[in-house]
Design a protein around this nucleic acid. Structure first.
Length: 136
DNA sequence: AGGCCTCCTG
DNA sequence: CAGGAGGCCT
């Protein structure tokens, strides 16, 4: 029964597009939070990027975790914190520099951050990805 | 043309 | 989160 489903071309295509959609939505949420917290920091009088840090007990982290990992199903990798912090600082600097007057000011940040993306885990590249994931 | 992505909405 | 429109790339 399951095999029948997973070998269905339409079904697989549907799944991938949905996954893409999810990642897209996640990304959006991520960047919205980043901008929000960066602006908040500025309003709170933060002057330097050194004061901006992302740890497991900061508000920004909580907001993200609440959204992506509400039930704490997995442990958030350290790398995520690093990238999150870099992103936050990137936003902070851009806003402080007044770059946000440019309608597409976020593009530059996106370009920087996407290079920090981790590689896609091998399991997702497998054609049997769905089966393998289900067996975990 | 088809796939993937972003942006805006609901 | 899902849908839809529009842009970019192959």
């Amino acid at each position: 029964m399951l095999k029948m489903f997973f070998s269905d071309v339409k079904f697989n295509r549907c799944i991938t597009s949905q996954l893409i959609k999810w990642f897209s939505n996640f990304r959006e949420f991520y960047y919205i939070q980043m901008e929000k917290f960066a602006r908040q920091a500025i309003n709170d009088g933060v002057t330097g990027t050194e004061e901006l840090t992302v740890s497991r007990d900061c508000e920004l982290y909580r907001a993200l975790n609440m959204h992506y990992n509400k039930a704490n199903d997995f442990e958030v990798p350290e790398r995520f914190l690093e990238v999150a912090q870099i992103t936050l600082r990137e936003f902070f600097n851009a806003i402080v520099a007044g770059k946000d007057v440019d309608p597409s000011w976020k593009k530059a940040i996106y370009k920087v951050i996407c290079k920090l993306d981790s590689d896609i885990p091998e399991i997702f590249k497998s054609p049997n990805c769905l089966q393998e994931l289900l067996h975990e």
